[in-house]
């Protein structure tokens, strides 16, 4: 069972990085809007898994993306942040039931899932763009990018979850 999880998450890591750099980074919708759907990895990481491991893997994921995009450490920072606060967001969206390992993200109600994905994506994007643009002068640009890219990312992440959730 452990080996199976390990294998699935490794494949997911590589596949999402490739999807991000080869496809999603080239969309440039309306000139500058790109979805950052690779964070699906953090969102669907097993809910009962070791939290420190997730934070470390999220950092690694972000750093890999940074390496491809020449963006310093902005993705790594945003990723480790949402990995760290994930337990609280889970509690906020799904109530305490998530702590009893009774839920699967693919099986929750649409509203709960949407609030979970939405909050995580918007937090990630806000930190990402704040660090990337790095100036209070352009706060409007930060909010605008967060919102537009965020909506785009949320749609793709929800799509990916529906597409790949296992049907039992």
């Amino acid at each position: 069972m452990l080996n199976n999880d390990f294998f699935i998450n490794t494949v997911r890591f590589i596949a999402l990085v490739l999807l991000q750099i080869l496809l999603l980074n080239n969309i440039n919708f309306m000139g500058y809007i790109n979805p950052y759907a690779y964070i699906t990895f953090i969102l669907v990481f097993p809910l009962n898994a070791n939290k420190s491991l997730l934070i470390f893997l999220a950092f690694l994921l972000g750093l890999t993306i940074d390496m491809f995009m020449d963006s310093g450490g902005v993705h790594a920072a945003a990723c480790s942040f949402i990995a760290y606060i994930r337990p609280w967001i889970l509690k906020f969206s799904f109530g305490v039931s998530y702590e009893h390992n009774t839920i699967r993200i693919g099986k929750t109600s649409m509203a709960q899932r949407f609030s979970y994905v939405g909050v995580m994506v918007l937090l990630h994007h806000f930190i990402l763009f704040s660090l990337e643009i790095f100036s209070l002068e352009h706060i409007l640009l930060i909010v605008k990018s967060t919102l537009f890219s965020g909506i785009f990312t949320i749609l793709i992440v929800l799509g990916l979850i529906i597409l790949f959730s296992r049907k039992n």
């Binding site: 420190s52 934070i55 950092f59 972000g62 750093l63 450490g73 790594a76 920072a77 480790s80 660090l131």
Partner: peptide, 14 residues
Amino acid sequence: LFLFLFAISLFFTI
């Protein structure tokens, strides 16, 4: 752990 990794990321960013 989070603080440590976040600090590294900020270092790379700056």
